[in-house]
Design a binder for these strands. Structure first.
Lengths: 141, 141
DNA sequence: AGGATAATGTTTGTATGCTAATGAATATCT
DNA sequence: AGATATTCATTAGCATACAAACATTATCCT
C-alpha cells in the first residue's frame, strides 16, 4: 500500500542521463588537463604503445571503437605525426600501426596528466567510494 | 614496500574509458528498445513534457545540452512533428517550445520502454549495487 | 536616457560514434 | 580446387557534442 506506482519518470535519475553527464564532466577535465589530445586519441595512442605494432581494426577492438571510428582517430594521430602506418606484407588487407618516436614521447608526457584526470574526475568521491564505483562501472561495460 | 608504483597505465581501468564503454552499452540497449528516438531526443521530449512550454536554451540547460546541441535535437523533434515552436511575444529573442499532441503521445508510449532500458542497463548489478552505483554516479555529474 | 553587459538563437568547424554498403584479400569447408 | 564465408579497410550518412563567432534583443548600471 506504500508502494509508489512508477507513474513518474524523472529524467535526472536515469542511468543514461547520469552517464552522459558524468562523461561530459570527464571530457571537460580531460580537455583542460591535456589540450593536445582527445580522450579517444589518447586511448588509441596508449593502447598502441602498450601493445606494439597492431592492425587498425585490432586497435579498434582493443579500445572499443568500431572500424569507422578508429579510422578517423588513427587518421588524426597520423596527421599529427604520432602514429605511423605501413601495409602488412603478410596480409595485404591490413594496415600495421605503430607509434612514432614523437608518439611515444607524447604518450610518456601525457601519462602523468592521465593520472591527474582520473583523480580529478573521481574527486567528488572518497577513495573507498571511488574503488566501489569503478568496480561496479566495470561490470556495466 | 608492497606499494605498487603508478608506473603502469592500464587503459582498461581508467574512469574515462569505463564511462565510454558503459555508455556504449547503454546506447545499444536504448536503440534496441526504443528505435524511433535517440536518447538525447527522448531526454529533450521528456523534459519538455515534464516542464511544459519553455525556451530552447532553457530546455538545453535542463537536459545538459549546450545551445548548439539542443538546437539540432529540437530541429529533429520538430521535423518529426513531436515538438512545436513559437516566437515568444514577451522576448523576441526566444523560441518557446511545447510538445505537440503527437509528442505527448510518443512520450507516453516511450515511458515503459525507458524503464526497461534503465533496468536492462543495470541488469549486471544487484538492486543494492545499482542503488549504490546510481548514488555515486550522480555525484560525478 | 544611454552605454556596457548579458542572454538567445544561429552558423561553422572539428571530433566522436554508429549503421550500412563496398571492394579487396584471406580463411574455411566441402 | 572451388565455392562460400569472413575479415579488413574505406566510404557515406546520420546524430550527438563542444568551441567560437555572430546578430539581435534584453537587462543592468550609472
Amino acid at each position: 500500500m506504500d508502494h509508489t506506482p512508477p507513474d513518474d519518470y524523472q529524467l535526472d535519475i536515469q542511468v543514461g542521463f547520469l552517464l552522459r553527464r558524468a562523461n561530459q564532466r570527464h571530457l571537460a577535465i580531460f580537455a583542460a588537463q591535456l589540450p593536445g589530445l582527445t580522450p579517444t586519441q589518447f586511448a588509441a595512442l596508449a593502447k598502441l604503445c602498450e601493445l606494439g605494432p597492431i592492425s587498425q581494426n585490432a586497435l579498434g577492438r582493443a579500445t572499443s571503437m568500431d572500424a569507422a571510428t578508429i579510422k578517423g582517430v588513427v587518421d588524426r594521430l597520423r596527421h599529427k605525426g604520432l602514429v605511423a602506418a605501413l601495409p602488412d606484407a603478410a596480409d595485404r588487407r591490413r594496415l600495421v600501426l605503430a607509434p612514432t618516436p614523437e608518439g611515444k614521447a607524447a604518450y610518456a608526457r601525457a601519462r602523468p596528466s592521465a593520472h591527474r584526470i582520473t583523480s580529478e574526475t573521481l574527486a567528488p568521491l572518497t577513495e573507498d567510494e571511488a574503488e566501489t564505483f569503478l568496480a561496479l562501472l566495470t561490470r556495466l561495460g
